[in-house]
Write a protein that binds this DNA or RNA. Structure first.
Lengths: 215, 215
DNA sequence: AGGAAACTTGACTAGATGGTCAAAATAAAC
DNA sequence: GTTTATTTTGACCATCTAGTCAAGTTTCCT
């Protein structure tokens, strides 16, 4: 995807210090924004976590919103990557299995990014509405067409493709977004930390792969 | 639960005006809280939507947090009702179908309540952590035991019961919580408003009921 | 009708918070 | 080593907002 080359901000040479500090700030911001939301987060909180003063943070990101958008954009590409890899020439069931597995791995590895994203959508996507209607919709349309061909070819049970994608998003991201609830309900069952991700994956694959097998 | 009898608020007879105005406020608060979150909401916003002055609102709910908790508690019981109705003596597949159908109907009818709840969990359930660990966990444990019996009796495909419940929550609530995203992706396909809820239900039932059929 | 209780609100306060600014400290360039 | 550009921050300001208060208005009860 050749974009954001000449368009706007990505033109300063970015000194070594710039590079380092911007990364530190974005990491701190993900932590805080994902926990408290945009309005619930203060610049001071982020600055404290990043180990610098508030004016210094403002020196790197002109405003709170600027920073918020940067953090979000940082995660969007990663978010789409697994779906983008859905291979029209692969075995349908295998492809779905790979996709589900990749999405669960992502929920497990980057739960904060998932929650940041979920929070943004939940509140009406004020900052990334364009992303949803543009790149996201395009990608889904594209992949839905592939799934539709699989269904029509009799390789998958008849299911509306877009809704299958929604279902997979829902069940996989649930474990990141509703982590507190999952842990509360499973309390004490968990011997080793995050063990439930494995159980979740098994349950999801059981239901989806069997439910999608052609018949 | 014998509590807060003599302590403070829950004892006034609630005049006609009290009853009416508290309801108006709670309704307005659900609107605003579900859209902007706790921190993103101002008392003035809620008061304006409720058609009264801020001090008057404070007269009915001592603080913003008070009101927030009231609104949340108002929705929690309704939230659990469908799961509570899962009948151990019914046909397993029929019972799951009924449950999924009821949850989708709820997402469609009360999307704001769903989003309020989702937002609260997403941010670590600061106000209802006790509810998750108490009533919610109890109910899930109870119903998971029923499902486990079904599985052991060979009436359902082998699946970890708690995760099956999570999966159903995830796919059904997704359509309320991520409404903006769903609409963005499906844009233009929708002839009649909310039509996609029917499609979603069909897709979910297809996958889950077939995926859960014993084999 | 008349007095008490319940309800309503304009004006206000205290604290929090996003962002500014000028001056100091550090790094880079020569 | 000196000059210049970049980075850093303490002090500050304007605005927003949760909550208060005293004074009014309406409703209820007899």
């Amino acid at each position: 995807m050749p974009e954001s080359q000449s368009t706007q901000s990505a033109n300063r040479p970015k000194s070594r210090i710039q590079q380092k500090n911007r990364q530190i700030i974005v990491d701190a911001a993900l932590d805080v924004f994902s926990t408290y939301g945009f309005r619930g987060t203060t610049i001071d909180q982020i600055a404290a976590r990043a180990g610098m003063s508030k004016p210094n943070l403002i020196y790197y990101f002109a405003s709170k919103e600027d920073l918020y958008v940067s953090v979000l954009e940082d995660t969007l590409d990663q978010w789409l990557a697994p779906l983008a890899e859905l291979d029209p020439d692969g075995d349908p069931i295998d492809e779905i299995r790979r996709y589900i597995t990749a999405k669960i791995a992502m929920s497990r590895a980057r739960p904060k990014a998932s929650r940041l994203f979920a929070n943004e959508i939940l509140h009406g996507a004020p900052a990334i509405g364009g992303f949803l209607q543009g790149p996201l919709k395009s990608l889904v349309d594209d992949k839905a067409a592939i799934i539709r061909r699989w269904v029509e070819g009799g390789a998958l049970a008849p299911v509306e493709p877009a809704h299958l994608i929604f279902m997979i998003w829902a069940v996989t991201q649930h474990y990141a977004d509703f982590d507190v609830q999952v842990r509360a309900v499973l309390a004490a069952e968990t011997t080793e930390k995050d063990r439930h991700f494995d159980d979740a994956q098994a349950a999801i694959l059981t239901v989806f792969l069997e439910g999608l097998r052609p018949r």
